[in-house]
Design a protein around this nucleic acid. Structure first.
Lengths: 341, 341
DNA sequence: TTAGTTTGCACAAACGTTTGTGCAATACTT
DNA sequence: AAGTATTGCACAAACGTTTGTGCAAACTAA
């Protein structure tokens, strides 16, 4: 007979006890405050029978802690972020925390609004995969030492904790792989410009080309969003403009999907006409016409690490110890890269 | 200079006003309570300058409304659910609501715990894609008229609102399509038994076989989870045991991935050896070796409808008006079904 | 038996809002 | 000028917890 109109005051009245005592039983502080085992049992039984759920909101107000964290991602429907979200939700729940979800739709304005709303909600901390072009939304938060952890994209100029992948090395690995397979004209479909992930990946790509004795042509780098449509449009442009291209490096899973759509539309085939390698491995990539070779990110590790670091910040005595974590990016070789004589 | 230590009491003191007045300005009740425009402006300017964020928790306590809904899904990393989640989050935010996320991992026990936790959190309502085998977790909620909307899976025996797809018709459509292409030995890889989605789909499949003059063999229906691994294992068993099978109907996107893995492992090809059709369209299905023919669900419509219905329940004077909505399932024809002479 | 100690619980303030109502001061009316 | 109406704001209770402290009653010791 669950009755949410019951609160600990009514329990107290019903049992002829004080609110104080009931509260202390519920919060398992019986020893500390010397509540007798007998009384404790009476209270617990009563709660059990009536399925009473003490008002958490009042508790939050009094304790000044909501046991809630905010999670803001650019696109929860992107499997990369939803996988991260899953592991964060799991880790949070196992530690007694709730997760409020915000989807910024890669929109800086919306992101800022979400951050503000979550501050109002008094979340204890924030995990955010920022749009990432501009750090101004977070400058104050970080300098106030508000518990916050960035995932995926982050800001070099901000002394905040983050968890991401070793994007530079990942791009190096991918580009070397293409060069090693004989490719000389390698294009790059990039993501949102000005983001740390994009900058590092493009840098890895360009520097590897140069150190491989190839000319790195910035015209072969196109795109300005991690979306499917951006990948599609820029792949079309790129492949029409530079017919000599034999390989394309895609900087995200969605970009790769867009590129594939474009390639198909142009009547070309992977890997016969165009070789393709992409960031962000997905289980289904193995079933593609040409199973995709990828540079993978460890999504669930990113999520669990991010939460653990955030938890440190929330409970820590030393809020100045920031953690910066870059996880390894394994290259997963499939069949989308052709070996050129 | 954002300072969350500011609250409306301090604003009041700083401005020489009463807390009451400040509160009324903030909540835009100036006309109702006759706060002069001049005073209102003073308060608003002060808040603007100091970037003050009034304590939402206190408001929630006083108002007995959290402007928060709970969303529980079996697997947020499944694109089907993450797409729904995205549209719900969007719709919720646009209506001033927050979304607390819970991932039940298709575990009844965990689901029940999540529901209980969210009740404690005093969410104003709940949207839940239930594990769906057993309705007992929700019986009380529904009978108490707690605002709740089921999505995807639901319970016939419960008079609760739900939004799902016309699963029966979808299965009929898919099965007819296979029969129409000459298939006579059609297997079915089902999802979690006892769930509404699964029952309706299997029913549609079996009845279509029968009405098509084919024998419906229950041995050709295997599986008990919507997961990739379940699809994989049962596809292996099924294809080994019944070599006469020419087509497989998969009841979810993940099951289809598992089936594909099994088919590949057995050295067979889609659609040459095995035709395949699956529920839950995904954008990337078009890039598969054999682009998959699917029966699609309208995820974002499911999400937005679910929230709107929930909102109705939350604000409505008439909590007894339940809505049951089944959205259309279009058949998307690609190349995974072979025409048999 | 009495003084000292321990046990078991209650009082009341505090967390930061919202809101019905009351009460001055000002404005309006004739 | 005096009475009435209106304007502008403040008081205080309430939402339901948590917690430092106080104070009887019960137990212990001599």
């Amino acid at each position: 007979m669950r009755d949410s109109s019951y609160n600990i005051q009514k329990i107290a009245k019903s049992l002829g006890l004080s609110v104080t005592t009931v509260s202390r039983v519920i919060s398992n502080q019986t020893e500390k405050y010397r509540i007798s085992a007998k009384t404790a049992k009476i209270v617990r039984d009563f709660i059990e029978v009536h399925q009473i759920e003490p008002n958490e909101i009042a508790r939050q107000l009094r304790m000044k802690s909501t046991k809630t964290i905010g999670l803001i991602v650019p696109d929860i429907a992107n499997p990369f972020f939803s996988e991260i979200a899953r592991s964060i939700e799991n880790e949070a729940r196992n530690n007694g925390y709730f997760v409020i979800l915000g989807d910024s739709n890669d929109d800086q304005k919306l992101e800022e609004e979400l951050v503000s709303l979550m501050q109002k909600r008094r979340v204890d901390g924030l995990i955010i995969a920022p749009v990432g072009k501009d750090s101004k939304t977070f400058k104050q938060l970080v300098s106030r030492n508000f518990p916050i952890v960035f995932v995926d994209r982050y800001f070099e100029e901000l002394d905040g904790s983050y968890v991401s992948s070793s994007n530079y090395e990942g791009a190096v690995k991918a580009t070397k792989f293409l060069i090693g397979n004989g490719h000389r004209n390698i294009a790059c479909l990039q993501g949102l410009q000005g983001t740390s992930t994009n900058s590092n990946r493009v840098k890895g790509y360009l520097e590897t080309l140069e150190s491989g004795g190839l000319i790195s042509d910035r015209n072969l780098v196109k795109g300005d969003s991690y979306s499917e449509s951006d990948g599609y449009h820029n792949a079309l442009i790129l492949l029409k403009e530079f017919p000599q291209i034999t390989a394309v490096l895609c900087l995200s899973n969605l970009i790769a999907l867009g590129a594939l759509r474009a390639i198909k539309e142009l009547g070309k085939k992977v890997p016969e006409d165009i070789s393709l390698i992409t960031f962000d491995d997905q289980p289904y990539f193995q079933f593609f016409q040409s199973p995709l070779t990828t540079v993978a990110q460890q999504m669930s590790s990113i999520g669990t690490s991010a939460f653990q670091i955030l938890l440190d910040h929330i409970v820590s005595e030393n809020p100045f110890l920031k953690q910066k974590l870059l996880l390894d990016m394994p290259l997963i070789e499939r069949e989308s890269v052709r070996i050129i004589g």
